[in-house]
Nucleic acid binder design. Structure first.
Lengths: 203, 203
DNA sequence: TAGCGGTTAGTACCAGGTTCTAAAAGTCAT
DNA sequence: ATGACTTTTAGAACCTGGTACTAACCGCTA
């Protein structure tokens, strides 16, 4: 229930609900804040802060830091596995491959909710490199068409087809077509250098 | 100095140097280990563990977690600001722009230390979009050449030039040339849709 | 035998909490 | 104003995972 605090106290306090909301905001914008600091900001006792945290299910500072550390540690470990962007669900080396990539918050322009091009490229490029059956495969050149914008939440399915020189040295041509549902949203033609050639160029 | 412990103790211990090396390994492979756990693994007292940590300059568990949390927090924050990949150091809207991007661990293939193509593309693409003076700018198509591989630690300087339709509706052509030092390492031609046009395509 | 490096033990103290009990203060209906 | 009720505050005991410091001990060697 809302409470009207005595004006005599002269202390500006918020009703419970608003205070708890503010608490969430404060911790959100600085997860490293201690309860003691929060008492200063919210002008209530440390016990109130702690009751609020309990009600809201917000763990203590150390627990928050531990969670962040663990999360980042897991990420670092999986970053190594992230040689490929998107999940490859089918791969026939030197022939074709399919990968799925879901457009999430971090992939879109915040204003428009439209995926940034380099993520779409990254998926296609990764797949093109993966499909080449070679020690080292690097993108030499590419020709891209972004057919229509891809939005937050859409699942982008990339299909790669090796168009030339399968199993042979030098450069391979890979065509990648990306779809959302039935609709083609991206098309790219990649030239990939293979390791047996003398001068790999990139990727 | 090396010590030969009594065999009578029956306890297998390592000389100081090797123990400290092992300590580093253990903390390295699991940064969340407590001193107490380390006493179990290394069969020495907790004081020895702590002396070792001091000598080696390894902070306590909580400090380690805090550092990891802070590091990851900074990353998350910079990801948010990462509407543009690379630091833009010069921008003349509808004319030209320059950005710098340093190739770090997370940008390279671990095996070859060569930057993955999509990062180089991301820098160029971001710059091409940024240089267009419009509400919404999306990549419609692109034509890329990865001239030579870019390695870990190299600073990639991308220069973008608007080639057509400056300030006018429809689509703009942007050429991006990326250099390491004097050497051109990447070249891309982008077609960018501007918001005043009816159907933006991507980026 | 004294000295030295390395190890261990123990105590006091710390931050940043949790858990629990209890009391005080504010609010509302009657 | 009174009693019931929510909300806030206080305080003490306890916890983890340490730091800081003092003191002792062990094994070896000069």
């Amino acid at each position: 229930m809302e409470r009207r605090y005595k004006e005599e106290t002269g202390i500006e306090r918020l009703p419970k609900r608003q205070r708890q909301q503010r608490l969430v905001e404060l911790i959100d914008e600085n997860p490293f804040v201690t309860d003691r600091e929060l008492t200063r900001r919210l002008k209530v006792s440390i016990q109130t802060i702690r009751l609020d945290r309990m009600e809201l299910g917000i763990p203590e500072l150390r627990e928050r830091m531990k969670l962040m550390a663990e999360r980042s540690y897991d990420q670092v470990r999986s970053l190594d596995a992230e040689e490929v962007i998107g999940d490859i669900i089918d791969l026939q080396l030197d022939r074709s491959g399919i990968s799925i990539f879901e457009i999430r918050e971090e992939h879109v322009f915040s204003r428009t909710q439209i995926a940034r091009g380099h993520h779409i490229f990254a998926q296609a490029n990764s797949l093109a490199v993966a499909v080449i059956n070679d020690e080292i495969a690097l993108t030499a050149s590419a020709d891209l068409r972004f057919v229509r914008p891809i939005h937050l939440g859409e699942k982008c399915i990339a299909k790669a087809y090796v168009r030339s020189n399968p199993g042979k040295a030098g450069r391979a041509k890979v065509e990648v077509l990306s779809y959302v549902g039935e609709e083609m949203v991206f098309q790219g033609n990649f030239i990939i250098y293979r390791s047996d050639d003398k001068k790999p160029l990139d990727s």
